[in-house]
C-alpha cells in the first residue's frame, strides 16, 4: 500500500528554515556578542534509548498491572474522533472508573490517542507530543483513517498508515467508532499491557532511524530537531 500521494512524496525541494529558527549572532543588552542556534539551544537531540524491563518478572508483572490500571490520556484530538472521546468523561460512559484519566500535558500522559485522520501538519505536532511523553507509552489509532486512510484514502495531504510514523499498540476500527468501542479498546489495551506486549516505546527506540526516515519523507518542512525529548 502506498502511503500519501506519490507525487507529494517525490517533491524534494527543500523548504527553507523559518527566519526565527536560523542560527545567528545577536548582541545582548550589555554589549556581548553571542551566537544562538534555536534548534540546538532549546531542545535535546539525544536519541531515545531502549529501556530494559524490570529484572524480576514478578516485579515487571506488578508494574504492568499498575500501568494497565492507570492510563493517563493526553488530551490531544486530531480529526473527528476527538468528539468521541469527550463523552467518556460524562456520566453515560464514565471512563474514570476504569482508571482512565485525562492529563493536560504530554509529560504526565502515557497514552496517546490519534483520534482520526492526521494531516501532515498535525503529524508533526503528534510526533512532538509523542516524543515528549515518558515511557512506557502507548498509542491507540482511533477510526479507519489511522488504519488505511479511510475516507481520506486519496487525499494529497493526509497520511494513511499511522503505524509507519508512530508505533501503534492498538487500532479501533470504525468510522467513527462509538464511545463504547473506545471503552472496549481500553480494556483490550489493558490486556496487552498486562501480557507485556505493549512495548511500543522500545520498538520506536529500536527502529528510530526508519521511523524518522518515514516521518521526514512526508514532512517537508522539518523545522525541529530529530528528537525533542
Amino acid at each position: 500500500m502506498k502511503d500519501i500521494d506519490e507525487t507529494f512524496r517525490k517533491i524534494d525541494a527543500t523548504v527553507p528554515l523559518r527566519e526565527e529558527l536560523r542560527p545567528r549572532t545577536v548582541t545582548t543588552p550589555d554589549g556581548q556578542e553571542i551566537t544562538i542556534e534555536p534548534l540546538k539551544d532549546y531542545f535535546c537531540e539525544a536519541a531515545p534509548k531502549v529501556h530494559p524491563k524490570a529484572y524480576f518478572q514478578i516485579v515487571e508483572n506488578f508494574y504492568n498491572w499498575a500501568r494497565s490500571n492507570s492510563l493517563w490520556i493526553l488530551g490531544f484530538g486530531t480529526g473527528c474522533g476527538a468528539i468521541e472521546m469527550r463523552p467518556l468523561m460524562t456520566p453515560r460512559f464514565d471512563a474514570y472508573r476504569y482508571g482512565v484519566q485525562w492529563r493536560p500535558t504530554p509529560r504526565q500522559a502515557n497514552l496517546l490517542i490519534i483520534s482520526g485522520y492526521l494531516s501532515v501538519k498535525t503529524l508533526k505536532r503528534a510526533i512532538r507530543a509523542y516524543e515528549q511523553m515518558q515511557g512506557p507509552k502507548y498509542v491507540i489509532g482511533l477510526g479507519s483513517c489511522t488504519i488505511n486512510g479511510g475516507m481520506y484514502w486519496d487525499s494529497y495531504n493526509t497520511i494513511k498508515r499511522l503505524d509507519d510514523y508512530l508505533p501503534v499498540d492498538l487500532y479501533i476500527a470504525g468510522c467513527m467508532p462509538r464511545p463504547e468501542a473506545l471503552l472496549h479498546g481500553f480494556i483490550e489495551l489493558k490486556k496487552l499491557i498486562r501480557a507485556g506486549k505493549a512495548e511500543g516505546t522500545n520498538r520506536y527506540a529500536e527502529n528510530f532511524a526508519s521511523y524518522k526516515a518515514a516521518q521526514k519523507s512526508v514532512i517537508k518542512d522539518w523545522d525541529m530537531p530529530d528528537y525533542n525529548w
Binding site: H51, R67, S70, G99, N110, Q134
Partner: peptide, 25 residues
Amino acid sequence: GGRHGIPFWQNYIDLVKNFAQRSKI
C-alpha cells in the same frame, strides 16, 4: 455529577505507575 468516579484505591495505582515509568528527564 452523576458518575461512578474513580475507585478509592486509584491513587495507589497511579503512584505505583508513576514510580514504574522507565524514562525520565
